[in-house]
Simulated assay, not measured.
Amino acid sequence: MARLYADEQFPYEVVEHLRDLGHDVVTVQEARKANLKIPDDEVLAFASSNERVVLTLNRRDFKRLHRYVPSHAGIIICTDDVDRSGLAKRINAAILAGEPLAGKLVSVVRPAR
């Protein structure tokens, strides 16, 4: 399964579901031992240096970072969804379909209602 790094706004409930699915997920808060405002480029650099794929809801900024820093461990951008379990399952499916994720930008969107 994937090694993931969830940025500071990523829903913790989704992190827990991903862990239940067998993924190794570390959050910014766990890695930094504080809930700090960390710039997106530092999130990406930390994740890449630790061979972890970034999980984020910050679609616009990480799309830009992907263009400027194409050499990374992977980025998964998501639209938020109140169905946390469903979001985790869609992320899991995207990971399985896209491996290896290094250098890729993967988009996981909320289903149409």
Rank of each mutant, 00 (worst) to 15 (best):
I38T: 10
I38L: 11
V43Y: 15
D80F: 14
D20C: 03
D80Q: 12
V106Q: 04
A6Y: 01
K37V: 08
R3C: 10
L105W: 07
N35W: 04
R90W: 01
V15M: 11
D83F: 12
V26Q: 03
L87T: 01
P100M: 08
L96M: 09
D40A: 12
R19V: 04
A34P: 09
G86R: 09
E51I: 08
R60L: 13
A88P: 10
G86N: 08
R110S: 03
I77P: 12
T27F: 07
L87Q: 03
A112G: 12
R84D: 11
F62S: 07
V69Q: 14
V15T: 09
A93W: 00
R113I: 03
L21A: 10
A6S: 07
N50F: 06
R110F: 02
L101Y: 06
L65R: 13
V53N: 01
S49C: 12
R67Q: 15
F46Q: 07
P39N: 13
R90F: 01
Q9N: 10
I91W: 05
A2Q: 02
A2Y: 05
L21F: 14
V82C: 13
D61Q: 07
I91A: 03
D80W: 13
D20Q: 12
F62Y: 13
R110G: 02
D81W: 15
N35Y: 08
I38Y: 00
L18T: 01
V43Q: 13
D41M: 15
V15N: 10
V28Y: 03
K33T: 00
S49D: 12
N58Y: 02
L36F: 11
R32H: 11
N50T: 08
R32P: 01
D81L: 09
I75A: 07
A112F: 14
V69I: 15
G103L: 04
L101T: 00
R3A: 13
R67V: 14
L101W: 05
R64K: 14
M1L: 10
V54I: 04
S85Y: 15
I38W: 01
G22Q: 05
K37I: 06
F46V: 01
A2V: 00
R84W: 15
G98F: 09
H17E: 08
L21N: 06
K33M: 02
Y5I: 00
K33L: 02
A6Q: 02
F62M: 09
A45S: 15
L65V: 04
